[in-house]
Design a protein around this nucleic acid. Structure first.
Lengths: 150, 150
DNA sequence: CTTAATCAAGACTAAAATCATCCTAATTAT
DNA sequence: ATAATTAGGATGATTTTAGTCTTGATTAAG
């Protein structure tokens, strides 16, 4: 349907949450679930994928939980989404050469290629660090607005 | 899954086929189906959608069939896809204001907005007339290559 | 060494979407 | 009349989506 799934959306929320925590702070599934409004048991599955991909690190047992797996400025939006959804291809003809035999003469193929490139430019250029910063600026701006409304 | 469906792909093939026919030429489901490698009965459903949206015109009965509904240079790739798939939204938060209540503070929301804008720039800029022209150039170039290989 | 806290892994499920097929009805030219 | 076509709707198999639940493994602390 040309739309990211809940998996992708929730993964972004979770990684973003971890990226915004103070260094060394361990977060529990419960915390992340409540703060980011993601069903707990569903989030649990998503965290497993993120852990296996290395984007987050987990520790089991008492005092266990999750921390971000790499510096937030090395994790892009695209990488986070693809960690749980698998690689993005806007059309099957982009999966690999020969996946669609029409690609050699199909005039639409290059358009999909370009569209995907443009999409990736956006998703690759935003890191989790950028987004944390953006969030704090939005918050500041919202607070300003509120003050002015009084 | 962030991928267009077969519906979208097949709709583009069908409209492109009609756009490449000589003026006034009426095409049958069978012709389109064979030329574009789309299952006939499936294509039939897709043609119904395209007809209702006005992108193609149909005539029933003997000597009936399909013709393109508007000048090919007024039909974009995006319009063709949306005619059968419905409007494209890369994430639910883009459907409409308030669809996701987090949009007011979510730092990812503006990124999706930008990503979708860039995607639309590509899909809006290619008309069926452009694609017909591109196809003929690809064909010419392929013929050249073949000649040189001999 | 027991226990409580936590994540890991996989089974399970309901609902929807995807990708079709098939049959009957309506329409049109000859 | 009849043959040729599209229109519309019912049906269906398979996959994906969006979750839930149960059991097992690991860890810290008393």
């Amino acid at each position: 349907m040309l739309q990211i799934t809940r998996d992708g959306e929730y993964a972004v929320r979770a990684v973003l949450f971890l990226a915004s925590q103070p260094e060394g702070k361990i977060s529990l599934i419960n915390e992340i679930s409540e703060a980011q409004e993601v069903p707990k048991s569903y989030l649990s599955k998503i965290m497993q994928h993120l852990t296996r991909s290395g984007l987050v690190k987990s520790r089991r047992g008492a005092k266990g939980g999750f921390v971000i797996g790499r510096p937030a400025d090395t994790i892009t939006l695209r990488e986070t989404i693809e960690a749980v959804e698998g690689p993005i291809f806007l059309n099957v003809c982009l999966i690999k050469k020969g996946e669609c035999h029409r690609d050699v003469f199909c005039p639409v193929h290059p358009v999909w290629k370009e569209a995907q490139k443009r999409l990736f430019e956006v998703l690759d250029s935003k890191t989790m660090a950028d987004l944390v910063k953006d969030a704090s600026e939005i918050e500041k701006s919202n607070a300003e607005d509120k003050k002015h409304r009084n």
